[in-house]
Amino acid sequence: MSISTIIRGDAERRQSRRAQKSRMKKVSRDEARERKRYRRMGFSNPANPSRSVLLTVLSALMAVYCLFPLVWLLINVTKTQGDFVTTFGLGFGSTFALFDNIARVFQYQDGIFFRWFVNTILYVVAGAGGATLLAILGGYGLSKFRFPGRKAVFAVVIGAISVPGIALAVPQFLLFAKLGLTNTPWSMIIPSLISPFGLYLMWIFSDQAVPDELLEAARMDGASEFRTFFTISLPLLAPGIVTTALFTIVATWNNYFLPLIMLKDSDWYPLTIGLNQWNKQASTAGGEAIQNLVVTGSLITIIPLILAFLLLQRYWQSGLAAGAVKE
């Protein structure tokens, strides 16, 4: 699985995906058969061990811990405002208002929720996309080149992110204000372009996934560094890129403090700030309590991330399965 696959034609992509799927199915069937065979023989293959019930149960405890609050969310999106404040949190309300809630979320205040949703997508595409790109280039550069100042980069990055973000917000805001960027999408996008963790991840991945010998061979053929990067390294880095993209997307999607400082116009709000504003409305004189919409909006906010994770995970997983990494 590589970037080139994604660029290829639609029909071809679908076909290859189907082929991939049936291949995966066959592999897992074979593996299951193999496990059975090995069990009979009393032998365990460490690359394909038999399943353990005890370990599954222990992990299930962890899964319950992780999913439990989300169950609360799923139950409460089905309640009306009245039921929300009066009925037991883990029980259903007297009416099933899920669809009504969803409709109202998108209608409330002239459908501003949809606007927030679009904004968030804009910030994610431009911000997280850009952050991933910068991290790929930077991480690759740090891994594959020895240049003056290289050692300083990591120290400076770690040092800079140790400065409490809250206190940086004021100088950051003043700087952006002087450039006339506050209250515009740029004030959200530009700071999102930096993902120190993404840089680190791409550095490590480049170390592991791109053999120096391969680059050396390409150089000997007279290819330029960028050509080498795009044709040889990038496909090898695909699994790392997807992982980095995943982290930057989540970070941008859930960013709270930055937009709180930078944006005032609710037309530019991302979902997190918009939801918080709705949540606070309950305690504002003249405001209407709409916690049911806050909860429903929260669920709608999480769903795209979960979908992105599930979809990206397939690339990520097949990338690993294809053995692109160190095998």
Partner: peptide
């Protein structure tokens, strides 16, 4: 406060 100290906005 931010807008006041930035002198704009």
């Amino acid at each position: 406060n931010n807008a006041i100290s930035a002198g704009s906005g």
